[in-house]
C-alpha cells in the first residue's frame, strides 16, 4: 500500500536519507530501528512531508505524495495518522480538544474555531477514549496527565483521523519500561483491529521484535537490513548499530529484566 522509491533528503552536503526504497503491505507493522541520527525520524516525516524530501517518491495507494500541491497534501495527510515521541499534545487544551484535533482535516475552519465538531466525530472520540483506557478523562487538561496517558491521547488523536497508515515516531522513548510495553501492545492491537499499516520508529529492539511483523534497519541514511524479526541476529545488529555484545538483547525473554535494571 505504501511504496517509498529512492527517497533522499539532503541538508547541504549531509545526506540524512540516501536512496531509500521500501514497500509496506496492507495491515503490515514495520519497525524502523537504527542508531540516533540514522535518519529514522526524517524518513517517517518525509512520508507526510513534515520534512520535504529532496528526491524520490512516496506513493500511498497509488497517490504520489511528493508531487502534491499544498492543499491536496492536506487532504492526503488525513489518511496518515502520526504518533509522536514526546506526545506532541497541546498542553493547555483539554484531552477532548486534543483528540478532536484529529478531525481538523475534515471540518471547516469556523467549525473548528468554535469547537463544534459533527456529533459523529464526538461519538467516535468518546469511543476511542474508552478504547485506549481514558474513559472519563475528557475534560482534563493535557498537561495534567501522566506520560502513558498522554501517549494514549496521542494515539486516540491519530486514530480519529480514520487513517490507513500510521507513522509512529519513538512512541515509548519517554516512558518507563512497563508503560512502554503497554503502549506498544495497544498500538499493535489497534492496528490489527483496524487493518492499519504502520511504520514504527523505535530504539528498543526487544520491543520491536515482539510487536512487529518486519524490521528495517537504518544506518547513516541507508537501509542495511530488511527482514523478519527472527532474522535479526548479532551480526545484523552490529551492522546497524556497530560493535557491542548483543547476547542480552537478542534473547528477548531476558530483555525485560535488563530494561528494568537499567
Amino acid at each position: 500500500m505504501l511504496e517509498i522509491q529512492a527517497l533522499s533528503k539532503r541538508y547541504g552536503s549531509f545526506a540524512a536519507l540516501d536512496d531509500v526504497t521500501l514497500s509496506i503491505g496492507e495491515g503490515e507493522l514495520v519497525a524502523l530501528i537504527g542508531p540516533s541520527g540514522a535518519g529514522k525520524s526524517t524518513l517517517i516525516r518525509c512520508v507526510n512531508r513534515l520534512v520535504e524530501p529532496t528526491g524520490g517518491n512516496v506513493v500511498l495507494k497509488g497517490t504520489n505524495l511528493t508531487t502534491l500541491s499544498r492543499s491536496a497534501l492536506r487532504f492526503e495527510r488525513r489518511r496518515i495518522g502520526m504518533i509522536f515521541q514526546d506526545y506532541a499534545l497541546v498542553n493547555r487544551l483539554t484531552v477532548m480538544e486534543n483528540v478532536l484535533s484529529g478531525r481538523l482535516g475534515y471540518v471547516g475552519f469556523l467549525r473548528s474555531l468554535v469547537r463544534r465538531f459533527p456529533q459523529a466525530d464526538v461519538d467516535e472520540a468518546f469511543r476511542l477514549l474508552a478504547r485506549v483506557g481514558l474513559e472519563g478523562l475528557h475534560d482534563r487538561r493535557a498537561d495534567a496527565l501522566s506520560g502513558g496517558q498522554r501517549q494514549r491521547v496521542g494515539i486516540a488523536r491519530a486514530l480519529l483521523q480514520s487513517p490507513q497508515l500510521l507513522l509512529v515516531d519513538e512512541p515509548t522513548a519517554s516512558l518507563d519500561p512497563r508503560t512502554a510495553r503497554q503502549i506498544m501492545r495497544l498500538v499493535s492491537e489497534l492496528c490489527r483491529e483496524r487493518g492499519l499499516a504502520a511504520i514504527i520508529n523505535i530504539h528498543d529492539v526487544p520491543l520491536a521484535r515482539s510487536f512487529t511483523d518486519r524490521i528495517i534497519g537504518l544506518a547513516a541514511g541507508k537501509i542495511v537490513f530488511n527482514g523478519a524479526p527472527d532474522a535479526l541476529n548479532d551480526e545484523v545488529l552490529t551492522t546497524i548499530y556497530g560493535d557491542e555484545d548483543w547476547s542480552q538483547t537478542t534473547q528477548s525473554d531476558a530483555a525485560e529484566e535488563e530494561e528494568v535494571a537499567a
Binding site: E97, F126, H138
Partner: peptide
C-alpha cells in the same frame, strides 16, 4: 441532548 451525551467546549 435528546438523551445522548454531547460534548461542548
Amino acid at each position: 441532548e435528546n438523551g445522548k451525551p454531547v460534548w461542548r467546549r
